[in-house]
C-alpha cells in the first residue's frame, strides 16, 4: 500500500513527500488526464448519440461527426480541466506566498485527479442509465431541435438519478481535494492550513455551484 496509485489515494502525504525527491514529471498525470478524458468521452458519446436522434433524417449523416467531436471534446476537456485546476491552485497559493514551480503544481494536481477515474466510471454508468431511459422524437426544424435540447437539459437536471450522479461526482471531487491539499503543501511549500485554503476555496465554490445547479435553483 506504500507504492503506486494506492499510495496516492490513501497516503498522499507520504507519496508527495517522496515525489519531491525526484524531478517533476507530467507523464503519469497526463496519462491520468487522458484516462479521465476517455471515460468522459463515453458519456459524451452517449449524449451525442441521443442528440443525433433528434436530427431530421437528412441530417443524420452528421451523426458520426457529432459523436466524434464529442469524444475529442471530452478528451481535450480532461486535459483542460487538469490544467485549469493546476493554474487555479498555483494562483491561489500565491496569495499564501507559496513557493515552487508550476510544473510541480501541475504534476501533483494531475495525481490528485486519480479519484476522478473511479468517479468517471461511476458517472458513465449513471449517464447510461439516464440516457437509455430517454426517447427523443425526431425534430423537423431548427426551432424544434433547440426546444428539444432545452427540454433535454431540464430533464437531466430534474432526474433523481442525475442528481445522485451529481452527488457522487462531488464526493469524488472531495476525495481529489483531499489529495490536492497534500499536493499543494509540498508542491508550493505551504502549511497544511494554507494548502487547505488554497484547495478548499476554489473547490468549495465549485461544489457550491454544483449543489445549487442540482437543486434546480439555477
Amino acid at each position: 500500500m506504500d507504492t503506486g496509485f494506492l499510495r496516492v489515494l490513501l497516503n498522499p502525504g507520504r507519496f508527495f513527500e517522496a515525489r519531491m525527491q525526484d524531478e517533476p514529471s507530467l507523464k503519469i498525470p497526463a496519462l491520468i488526464a487522458l484516462v479521465i478524458g476517455l471515460i468522459g468521452a463515453v458519456s459524451a458519446a452517449l449524449a451525442a448519440n441521443l442528440i443525433v436522434g433528434i436530427l431530421p433524417a437528412e441530417m443524420q449523416a452528421f451523426g458520426p461527426i457529432m459523436v466524434a467531436f464529442s469524444v475529442v471534446g471530452a478528451v481535450i476537456g480532461g486535459f483542460l480541466t487538469w490544467i485549469v485546476y493546476g493554474f487555479v491552485f498555483y494562483l491561489f497559493s500565491m496569495v499564501f506566498k507559496g513557493q515552487g514551480d508550476l510544473k510541480r503544481t501541475l504534476e501533483f494536481t494531475g495525481y490528485g485527479f486519480l479519484p476522478q477515474v473511479f468517479g468517471g466510471i461511476i458517472g458513465a454508468v449513471f449517464s447510461y442509465q439516464i440516457l437509455s431511459g430517454l426517447t427523443i422524437p425526431a425534430a423537423t426544424s431548427p426551432e424544434q431541435i433547440a426546444e428539444i435540447s432545452e427540454n433535454l437539459a431540464s430533464i437531466l437536471v430534474t432526474d433523481p438519478l442525475a442528481q445522485i450522479a451529481g452527488l457522487a461526482s462531488i464526493l469524488f471531487l472531495i476525495w481529489s481535494a483531499n489529495i490536492w491539499i497534500f499536493g499543494m503543501k509540498y508542491a508550493r511549500n505551504l502549511s497544511t492550513r494554507d494548502a487547505a485554503l488554497t484547495v478548499g476555496i476554489p473547490v468549495g465554490l465549485f461544489i457550491l455551484y454544483t449543489l445549487v445547479t442540482l437543486a434546480g435553483w439555477l
Binding site: L134, P137, Q144, I148, D159, I164
Partner: peptide
C-alpha cells in the same frame, strides 16, 4: 413533438444509485 418525454423508469427513487 417539441417535447422530449422520458420513458417510464421503474417508479420511485433509484435505490441502487443511492446505495452506490
Amino acid at each position: 413533438s417539441a417535447a422530449a418525454p422520458l420513458e417510464e423508469r421503474d417508479g420511485g427513487l433509484p435505490v441502487a444509485g443511492i446505495v452506490v
